[in-house]
Nucleic acid binder design. Structure first.
Lengths: 248, 248
DNA sequence: TCTAATAGCGTATGACGTTAACTGTTTATA
DNA sequence: TATAAACAGTTAACGTCATACGCTATTAGA
């Protein structure tokens, strides 16, 4: 459900020591628990991540987990950040455009490697250390771009969000093994959709000539297409901004 | 979990008659069931949508639902499409740019009105009739734009995806009642983050001067900012395409 | 040493999605 | 008209889930 956050989530995300004095020494560590969850998700999907299973994996009773984590939701948030550690960092010697393209690509690749990534409840706000390091990398690529921090952050957010959608599409395509998602979309349309109900769509599709096999149009690789759109928009914005701040 | 689709999903989405002959006449209809689920989600959130609750709402035993729906997942897909009927359609007399902007805005507004929208498992592929009508509207706005159908579809997909992320941010902001999400982000950073671990981010933030109260920078309304980026990118692409197809 | 805080465990509860076997109803066909 | 197939909905049960509550054992400060 909609994520309600505990006030202790942030310290936990950042691995702050609980600073407790009295009482027995903890046999479990939060890192252990998150790691067990990670292994379970990795091997059997996110559905396998239940409190009981994690507890079994880590060798304790289910309820012991609640000493280290408020909720299952919280565990999943920690798991999300843990997963960000698996992102394959591209070379840092790239211009902002190539850098960000690689940065986006790496996220899609992670989703392809670990499809359960997309099943996670996506916490937009409150990045943990690993996700923040990833954001930092984006800022690294943007280091020579003259934009205020807020705009950079907004850009990173947009790219991230776009990437998530792109990843969804690619993972779904990889799972369904369809050759051409566009063709199957059109197939569904002509079979079920009443042309009078979707006139604009039908009109546009009427002018569509099926590509010869092997021939790929520009939009076929939706990834490159979407990236191009976004990066072009960003570039235009940068230029506009430079013009504005140096008016002669 | 990752959506596996029944082969009967599509007919059900499109309300095809089951064409069964023998047997008693159904007392339940699929539309009834989906409507009950819709009401439940609307009044008590998506967690309230359980097979048992829906059954109770509709006045039958839980298992009866499985005559009309393969899974709960399938019910949620139908529910998603049902929700798309609630989108507030903007005026059709708009150019592609203003039209698409309003089109995106309407989606964010829906998410704000019905926050459980974002809790739905988002089926990227296989739009139902209501969602398809919404896509048709986007194509309507793009009617005078000279792009192939596939590229238009890719654009619509990108905008849709971006909108989803934007909606997430706005809903989260509305729920948390924070004045400035950027400020709280920065707050979290200075409190917990080690500057040496996130050098680029910190460097960029160092140059950031807090806006005076009341003063709004361009990126503060991330919605307008992101939309601007995307639409600028699309415009650039259109111009490039026109140049390419009419080379003199 | 006493005491209070803590770590982990055992038990229990209610809700969940879904399987399987059934009861009754309608209609096509023999 | 009789019969059997196809269908709608029910009942009961299973396994799993997250988690509330109370308990015991352990430790550090007083």
């Amino acid at each position: 459900m909609m994520g309600v956050m505990s006030s202790d989530l942030i310290p936990r995300l950042w691995g702050k020591p609980p600073a407790g004095r009295r009482g027995p020494k903890p046999a479990l560590s939060l890192a252990q628990i998150v790691e067990a969850a990670y292994v379970l998700a990795d091997e059997h999907g996110l559905t396998a991540v239940s409190m009981a299973r994690v507890a079994e994996e880590v060798g304790c009773s289910p309820m012991a987990l609640y000493r280290h984590v408020k909720n299952k939701d919280e565990l999943l948030i920690l798991l999300s950040d843990r997963l960000c550690a698996e992102l394959a960092e591209p070379s840092r010697d790239l211009g902002w455009r190539e850098g960000l393209a690689a940065w986006m690509r790496a996220q899609v690749d992670l989703a392809l490697r670990k499809p359960w990534f997309l099943d996670l409840p996506l916490a937009v706000t409150l990045p943990g250390p690993n996700r923040l390091a990833w954001i930092d990398l984006a800022f690294h690529y943007l280091r020579d771009v003259a934009l205020p921090a807020e705009e950079k952050l907004a850009i990173v957010g947009i790219l991230s969000q776009y990437t998530l959608g792109e990843a969804r599409i690619e993972v779904e395509a990889a799972l369904s093994e369809e050759d051409d998602p566009f063709a199957s979309f059109e197939q569904m349309l002509v079979t079920y959709a009443d042309p009078e109900r979707f006139p604009s769509l039908m009109a546009s599709l009427a002018t569509w000539s099926p590509a010869a096999p092997g021939e790929r149009s520009e939009a076929d690789d939706a990834s490159a297409f979407g990236q191009g759109l976004l990066l072009a928009g960003i570039e235009a914005h940068i230029e506009r901004h430079v013009e504005r701040s140096t008016p002669e």
